[in-house]
Amino acid sequence: MNEYQHLTKQGLWDNNPALVQLLGLCPLLAVTASVTNALGLGLATLFVLVGSNITVSLVRQFVPSEIRIPVFVMVIATFVTIIQLLMNAYVFQLYQSLGIFIPLIVTNCAIIGRAEAYASKNPWQRAAFDGLAMGVGFALVLVVLGAMREIIGNGTLFDGAELLLGEWAAQLRIELFTVNYPLLLAILPPGAFIGMGFIIALKNKIDAVRSARAEKKTVTRARVTA
């Protein structure tokens, strides 16, 4: 397995920022009431993550360890502010519905975590790829959780996708079923916690089954003595 495959596996599954590292839960739980919102925040986070990873990796030679954290924070904050301004200007509707969660990306520990754990120790190509893998992993969890909550709570999928992707996306909306009384809990924040719990449990279960199936390897015993 080469480094890029390894990074992909880490970001998407083994070390998924949301499911395994449990980072960035605040925006994750707050915006996943629908797929559209989840996708929006996921993409924004992805973009910031790639950008900050590249930047951190590029400047890592010049930054002494004493001030690395403030520098990372500044890099991330700059990216987030820029994204916020751009979204405000070009995808205003989505900006409105994601609201205060865009600035919250600054506090998403997944980003500073990657900067510290990976980008500050690796060349920029790899750092960029790590940011991409981690960002995609994070966004995927967001989308899955968003889909789950939207289906249970609203009976739809991709409701309001046009806000994010333009008018054509209005056709994406799928009405799975209509109920008179949607399960509001799914849409409300507690539903996010419960749903997240179930996704993590599912992941752990899959891992357990996979490791049970995995072939047994043998390790040669090291001899301490003659």
């Binding site: 009384y181 509001l184 809990l185 409300l188 507690p190």
Partner: peptide, 10 residues
């Protein structure tokens, strides 16, 4: 509480 939050009318 689940019921109260989810089905306030009923």
């Amino acid at each position: 509480v689940l019921l109260l939050i989810s089905f306030p009318v009923q």
